[in-house]
Design a protein around this nucleic acid. Structure first.
Lengths: 339, 339
DNA sequence: TTGAAAGCGCTAACAG
DNA sequence: CTGTTAGCGCTTTCAA
């Protein structure tokens, strides 16, 4: 047994007093004499006593812990969100348990289960791309554990969410291209079973409509990875009426497209203007610099956590979920404007 | 009270049997009749019973939890490490609690305390840039909690560590340039008060020495950010004997340099070959693709966690710490070789 | 001003 | 095959 862990009992024994007195002394209970307090505190310090949070959690049936289920930490956006979560949680005295689903449904289910077992006080979730069945999340609801969605929501579940205004941001991005005089705007998007995929596409289409540009389905692809992009580009560039610009659902896809375009000897932004989404560390670094939508990940993490902690503190069984929409910010760079 | 949490007792009461029977039935104890097992399991499923991990941890004085103290999640390298940690921990049935120090000493101390209170079974640490005083880490040792350092070690503390072979990787990177016939190799490096900065510079210098190329201090800069790089480049290119290549301490610095070089109308790799370090998501994405050293963050996370879990399982008070060195892998791409 | 006892949820002897 | 009991570490009535 490793546990050289000092307990309140140990302190009590050493001092020939009761455990409850020690407990009270440690938290400056007014009933306890100054002398006892001193004694107890001194010994506690000497023995490096560390309160056992597990025992406390068990007793209070609250763990002061927040669970996070996130697709992948390695995405810059998500790691920003985590930073936001961490900062708020830390300041409010909560511990954060982060679980990655790796975009896999089974893993998300397992994570949820683990968090439930851990008796987290609340859960922050961004669902995986695979997730369709929602039983595990309903399960969280059933246990009356507050849950806040961030970035990727489940519209079938009534819960608070913090989202970016995907529709509008996509609208702005497309409008930006339209205002540059582009008419044949391709869209690499999806996944269409997710809100973010659908909404961004809808924003794109709405902008076209508002500018009286016909939607051409041949310019719309379900393609949302770096690897997906080149194939689509090659295909489109063989049309007799190829695109003059491109709006991608995320930056990596945009970059994949850019490289394919450049490899065909075409110039960006002159021949084809490109706009990405979810302003990452890349946007500034590639050549040409990528126009993109800043998703404000850190802010999103903060907001979601603030809401969650509020819910935890309120401790209401029923409440009207709020949806906080963070506007995306279009950041115009070289990939869509001539210098 | 929110807790609509079902306990073993509830199940027992519903079924008119004892709690221990329920407990045993749930874990397929051979003593329990099939019939009882069925009853119990069915009801447990119906009531969505979730075992309380806190109670278990308290009982067993082990939490099946690993604590991680990491400078910043938003660094691609660290997020890769986390992925490695998560994967191994997940497969071994451990929960991972991640704390960011944000490179701040006080925060690191607070994190350590929280993890200790949480009774994590082991700790993975990469110390912050600020950390000098090590009491909080000694505290972990005192509590007999296994600790493994990754990437950034504390040489004053006897603990397992998993590091990358910075010296040798830098040596290889420099040698690669030398073998291409480059002689005027600049180095953008640092910070010199950290092992990584120092060792990479030393590897660079050793390679020059071994190839009988004179070290020119005018080609060495303490510059390790994207923003630092352009200034150095501009300065060097005015020398009457300017560099023909460049080795940077990290990719972002390399990329900053590349852009400055390109902006001066020079070609990469023809005029100046560039090598980075810490192969990030960028390397493949910029133009030309960047030659860099893969630091194997994922692998590092895996290794560190494997060692830690081994230590936890061994449960020995004393052991000889191991230091695992992961060799960096030079990945040659277009920035240092003509296609 | 302090102590004794009960209980948070669970399990593992020990008894039947 | 099942129940009783005790205890993990802590807090909190209630009693002294």
């Amino acid at each position: 047994m490793r546990s050289s862990q000092v307990t309140i009992k140990d302190i009590a024994k050493h001092l020939g007093i009761s455990a409850s007195t020690v407990s009270r002394a440690l938290k400056d209970h007014p009933d306890i004499s100054e002398e006892t307090k001193r004694m107890v505190k001194d010994l506690a310090a000497k023995l490096k006593y560390q309160p056992n949070a597990l025992a406390l959690s068990l007793k209070n049936s609250k763990s002061n812990t927040i669970g996070v289920i996130i697709p992948e930490v390695v995405h810059y956006f998500f790691s920003q969100v985590i930073s936001g979560i961490e900062d708020v949680a830390y300041n409010a005295g909560y511990t954060v348990v982060i679980c990655q689903s790796n975009e896999r449904y089974v893993r998300e289910v397992a994570n949820t289960k683990a968090l439930l077992a851990q008796r987290v006080d609340g859960v922050l979730v961004s669902i995986s791309k695979e997730t369709q069945d929602l039983e595990h999340l309903h399960n969280v609801e059933d246990h009356n554990i507050p849950m806040v969605f961030f970035d990727r929501r489940c519209s079938d579940i009534e819960a608070d969410s913090v989202l970016i205004d995907d529709f509008n941001a996509a609208y702005q991005a497309t409008k930006h291209l339209l205002k540059l005089g582009r008419k044949r705007i391709a869209h690499l998007g999806g996944p269409m079973h997710m809100d973010i995929g659908r909404l961004r596409k809808e924003g794109y289409m709405q902008a076209l409509k508002d500018f009286d540009v016909e939607v051409d389905e041949a310019l719309i692809f379900e393609a949302n990875t770096f690897e997906d992009a080149p194939g689509c580009v090659q295909k489109m560039m063989q049309y007799k009426n190829p695109p003059d610009s491109l709006f991608a659902v995320n930056d990596l896809t945009a970059i994949g497209a850019i490289q394919a375009i450049q490899n065909m000897g075409l110039k960006i932004p002159e021949d084809i203007s490109v706009v990405g989404f979810s302003d990452g560390r890349f946007s500034n670094i590639i050549n040409p610099k990528l126009t993109s939508v800043d998703q404000h990940g850190y802010e999103m993490g903060r907001k979601a956590t603030e809401i969650l902690i509020k819910r935890i503190k309120e401790d209401q069984r029923e409440y009207d979920p709020v949806t906080e929409i963070i506007p995306g910010t279009l950041i115009v760079r070289d990939s869509s404007v001539n210098r």
